[in-house]
């Protein structure tokens, strides 16, 4: 939305102006060399240019210290959370199938509808899903040996069923009776390399045409 880009823009402009101001002021300080000036200009330069980097590196230090604990936590509870999520999706699926009387999603084009169609429109849903670093490590080991990588397949399958379920819920919300010509796209979200912060994230995007029987 717009306010977000505005905020980023103002922040960038403010940072740049502060930088320019501090550079100009420090240059003046060097030229004039007045010892009776209150705080030395070097303080401003340090405050505005060096301090942010120091804080940033502190954040990274904290990250580095906390990472092993977070990793172990993810390894211990990641699988269980995934299981919980899959079970919740199964329950939601059941309730929406009850509402529609059948599974509303299909890849058919609509020629099977006998009574005719009153109204139609686009319906879509997306979800960004990432496997935990523990799963990525296991997948890396699997890569060495070869064969199936079941642990990643489970995560992506869970994300896909959730995207499909979101599509059903949105169709229900918009009042459609059925969703035709459903397509499911999978896109790599973060194709960064080894140094990327977010690794292995995929975006699942499902869309179709909702129809209302005439």
């Amino acid at each position: 939305m717009h306010y977000r880009t505005n905020r980023v823009r103002t922040l960038a402009i403010a940072l740049l102006s502060v930088l320019a101001f501090s550079v100009v002021v420090s240059a003046q300080g060097v030229v004039e060399e007045r010892p009776e000036e209150g705080p030395p200009m070097i303080l401003f330069v340090v405050g505005f240019c060096v301090l942010p980097w120091v804080l940033l590196s502190l954040v990274w230090v904290v990250y580095g210290v906390a990472y092993p604990f977070m990793f172990i936590f993810g390894a211990l509870f990641g699988g269980r959370n995934l299981e919980k999520r899959i079970n919740a999706v199964v329950l939601r699926e059941r309730s929406s199938i009850e509402h529609f009387g059948k599974d509303p999603l299909s890849t058919l084009k609509g020629s099977h509808i006998v009574g005719g169609v009153n109204n139609s429109g686009l319906v879509y849903s997306s979800i960004v899903y990432a496997p935990s670093h523990w799963m990525l490590l296991i997948a890396w080991f699997n890569n060495l040996v070869g064969g199936r990588v079941d642990i990643l397949q489970r995560a992506v399958a869970a994300a896909r069923s959730e995207a499909k379920q979101l599509l059903r819920e949105r169709a229900k919300e918009a009042g459609w009776d059925e969703v035709l010509n459903v397509r499911i796209d999978t896109a790599e979200m973060a194709p960064g390399g080894r140094n990327a912060l977010v690794r292995g994230a995929v975006e699942i995007f499902a869309y179709g045409t909702g129809v209302k029987y005439g």
Partner: peptide, 12 residues
């Protein structure tokens, strides 16, 4: 989101 990625799951 990188921290969320360590645990795995949806990146909301």
């Amino acid at each position: 989101q990188g921290i969320r990625n360590i645990f795995g799951g949806e990146l909301l």
